[in-house]
Design a protein around this nucleic acid. Structure first.
Lengths: 209, 209
DNA sequence: TTCTGTGAATAGGTTCACAGCT
DNA sequence: AGCTGTGAACCTATTCACAGAA
């Protein structure tokens, strides 16, 4: 199979979001493009990288295409997620409904703060970080979410890696170092805002007509 | 000035993050590349789009480069941020230290839930969403953060737009429609996880050697 | 006619490689 | 020697445009 770009995957997620909200029988590449903020050619290109799901003259059958994209993204199975860091962001993630509906289940929350350990979070107990590696080796998980301070992030990551975790979502403002074969995605609100301020500072060169 | 790509801006944010953590006098493009997960040529290209900040044979002076990048990103002035949606994510953002240190100040929190209106959040009162437009017209802000349900997001966005907001950070799982000249950035945790599951499902074609 | 799938053309982004400054 | 700044080469992504299926 051809090499798939990161952008394509991001767009597939977006198409999926739309498809799951849609109650039509079929969608055209134009419909999907409108929502994803791209062009119809882009949509067709994105999809055609994985096969021919559409029917000429008609469009794409919503149910079938949904199933296919979920398959491509690997969403046909559930994922066990470990959360490290029982702070505000962690707490927001635990209650985030968008996870459960996609098959992501948070199965463990870890922290090093004695004041937090033992607390009951949405039915889950906050556990001692020192147990993390052992617990993972007894019962493996798929994805680790790091919501610690920058200082603690690499150490926590190492424990996740020793526990066999192969995918990490990192909220700490540091670049994690991981071995080949492990994927990391970084999320940083300040970076998102900075991209907005860049636009505010530079784009207003867009006159009204 | 040349057209700057979104990727370049994202990387500049990353370089800035590193520079602010650094206590060296100068950094080389290799140092920055190591942290940004790119190549030294990429770093030099990114920076050279805005001028010649480095010195041949030496590298880039940290203080000066920091100042320059902050300037490019428009961070030399403070920004007033309005938060709409007093849920868990909103609460995490209000206390997020990474904002204040970059000059982002949340100046208002709005919600439509009578049970939340009036609550004291970190020194800020949660206000009635019906006041949003009026308040904005009396005292403008720069950036709106939308952390409502998908249903409410567009309506809230319209109020922000009528209040003169030109930049929006959207956490709701819908594509917001905004007029030309307004920038929107979407943040969606499920999409981030999906990019990880895609890798988990497909990349393990990376053998140990 | 409508709309997909895809070669071919175009545009955009990244890496190479080296001249030139320190 | 060490390291930037930048044309030129290369590679990747997007758009065009149209043949072919419904």
């Amino acid at each position: 199979m051809r090499k798939i770009s990161d952008n394509t995957i991001r767009r597939l997620s977006l198409y999926l979001q739309f498809l799951e909200q849609s109650n039509m029988l079929t969608v055209s590449s134009r419909d999907l493009a409108w929502l994803g903020g791209t062009t119809s050619a882009q949509v067709r290109r994105d999809l055609s990288a994985f096969g021919s799901f559409g029917r000429r003259g008609l469009g794409y059958p919503v149910v079938e295409l949904t199933r296919r994209i979920r398959g491509i993204l690997g969403l046909e199975r559930p994922y066990r997620v470990i959360l490290v860091g029982a702070g505000k962001i962690g707490s927001a993630l635990v209650e985030y409904s968008g996870f459960r509906s996609r098959g992501f289940t948070i199965v463990g929350i870890y922290d090093n703060d004695p004041k937090k350990i033992g607390a009951n979070w949405n039915g889950l107990r906050v556990l001692d970080i020192r147990r993390l590696e052992r617990d993972l080796n007894e019962e493996p998980s798929d994805i680790g979410i790091v919501v610690t301070s920058a200082d603690a992030a690499q150490e926590v990551t190492n424990a996740l890696l020793r526990g066999g975790i192969k995918a990490i979502l990192n909220f700490a403002p540091v670049q994690l170092s991981v071995p080949e074969g492990v994927v990391v995605r970084n999320v940083n609100m300040a970076h998102e805002l900075e991209s907005l301020t860049y636009s505010l500072a530079n784009l207003p060169a867009t006159p009204p007509t």
